[in-house]
């Protein structure tokens, strides 16, 4: 099954141009690994961008620009290929983008629901974590005051926005209020980047919130 829910265009473009923050970038990268359509779109845009660049009328450079750059080649010597980080986690789905990140332990946060931290290289307003929910779990109803980006690594859930299966990306913002229900069958594992606070409702929500400091 190829994903049918993708990140919003702005996010893909920000990913492409390198302006997405680390947390969001990680989730988009995970989606890309699972989504041939988005890979094709970005690869296509890169090619189109190249054609655009090739077609621009040249703007003359200053005198000796080439000499200046040639003289600087040695000072900026070669970055060697970074050794590819090993996937050192026990997740059932291997995501290359997650490999360099340290994962915490699964922590119980409610009936059938587990939470696991993902460490980023820089502390920022964005937090990234994994959620695991047993088949059939009804997750607490919640709204956000920031943005949230989720990619489903395994299993599936449904909410008002549709069905989200493996590889799908749920690109929610503060206007969304939803109450995801995990499908029967497989346990559902998601990678989530979240900015701002999530407001959970109901008994389960009040139970969970202090535990995960969402």
């Amino acid at each position: 099954m190829t994903p049918t829910h993708h990140p919003k265009e702005e996010k893909l473009l920000e990913y492409f141009s390198g302006s997405l923050d680390e947390g969001m970038r990680l989730v988009v990268a995970a989606h890309l690994e699972m989504c041939p359509s988005c890979r094709r779109l970005l690869a296509g845009l890169e090619i189109a961008g190249g054609t655009y660049l090739d077609g621009l009328p040249a703007a003359p450079l200053g005198e000796h620009a080439l000499e200046r750059v040639l003289s600087r080649l040695d000072e900026s010597e070669v970055s060697q290929p970074a050794p590819r980080a090993q996937a050192a986690n026990d997740l059932p789905v291997q995501i290359r983008a997650l490999a360099p990140h340290q994962l915490g332990r699964w922590r119980w946060i409610g009936p059938g629901v587990y939470w696991r931290s993902v460490t980023l290289s820089q502390q920022g307003p964005m937090r990234v974590f994994l959620l695991k929910a047993a088949p059939g779990t009804q997750l607490p109803q919640h709204t956000h005051d920031g943005t949230e980006l989720t990619v489903i690594l395994q299993g599936a859930f449904r909410h008002e926005g549709g069905r989200f299966g493996a590889g799908d990306c749920d690109d929610a913002d503060d206007t969304v209020e939803h109450r995801p229900a995990v499908e029967e069958g497989e346990e559902c594992i998601c990678l989530v980047a979240m900015e701002g606070n999530i407001r959970l409702r109901g008994f389960l929500g009040r139970l969970i919130q202090p535990l995960v400091r969402l």
Binding site: S17, E46, I47, G49, G50, Y52, V78, S79
Partner: peptide
């Protein structure tokens, strides 16, 4: 510096440079 990252089988040269510029 990053020429080693360029994969001629998987990317177009000008596209790759475009991405660097962007």
């Amino acid at each position: 510096r990053k020429a080693y990252l360029f994969d001629p089988a998987g990317a177009s040269a000008s596209g790759w440079v475009f991405r660097i510029a962007q």
